Simulated scan of single mutants.
Amino acid sequence: MEPRRDRGGGRLTGHASRQSEWVARGPSWAATRWAAHGDRFSSTCSRDRAATRERIAELDDALRRMDAATYGVCERCRQPIAEERLAVRPFARCCVSCA
C-alpha cells in the first residue's frame, strides 16, 4: 500500500499513519495492539473448530442411522426425506415439511 499524504500538512494518512503511531508509542503498546488482534483471530478459530466438530458429530450420527436403516426417514412424520434435501444436507433428520 502506497503511503498517502493529506492535502494540508503533508502528514501520512491511512495505514502508514497507524504504523507511525505504533512505532512512536513504543513496542509494548504495539504488542498490546497485536495481542488484541490475535485474541480476535483465536476466537474466530475456536468458533470454526466448534462448528466443524458439530458438523462431524452430525455426519457420524447420519452414519449410525444408515447402519440402523433409518437414514432418509423423517424422525417426526416417518415419511421419506427427499433425495434433493439429503443431497444438500446429508445429515438431515427431518423432511422439509417437518423442519
Rank of each mutant, 00 (worst) to 15 (best):
E75H: 03
R49T: 08
H37P: 06
R33D: 04
R18S: 13
D67E: 14
P27K: 05
T13R: 07
A30P: 02
G26Q: 15
F91Y: 13
E84R: 15
R64F: 08
E75F: 01
R93F: 03
T32F: 10
R49L: 13
A16G: 00
A36V: 07
P90L: 08
I56F: 01
D60Y: 12
R53A: 14
S43R: 12
E21R: 10
C95I: 08
A82Q: 01
R4L: 07
L12P: 07
E54C: 00
S97Y: 03
G14F: 03
Q79M: 14
D6S: 06
A68H: 06
C77E: 14
R18Y: 02
A30W: 02
A24N: 10
L12S: 15
A36I: 14
F41T: 10
A30F: 00
R47V: 11
S43A: 12
E58K: 12
V23G: 07
G38N: 08
C74K: 07
A50V: 06
R55E: 00
I81H: 13
W22Q: 07
G26I: 14
Q79D: 13
R4V: 05
C77V: 15
M66K: 11
W22E: 09
E54P: 02
D6H: 13
R65T: 09
G14T: 09
R89S: 08
C94P: 01
T32D: 13
A24S: 13
L12H: 11
D48R: 11
R93H: 13
R49D: 11
R65P: 03
V88M: 07
I81V: 12
C95D: 08
P27T: 09
A87D: 00
R76Q: 11
M66R: 10
A31P: 00
I56A: 02
L63D: 02
L12E: 14
F41M: 10
A30I: 09
G8M: 15
A69I: 08
R49G: 01
C45M: 10
E21Y: 05
D39F: 09
L59W: 12
T70R: 14
R53D: 09
R53Q: 07
A51H: 09
G9V: 07
D6E: 15
A35E: 13
R78N: 04
T70Q: 11
E83L: 15
S46L: 11
G8D: 15
A57L: 01
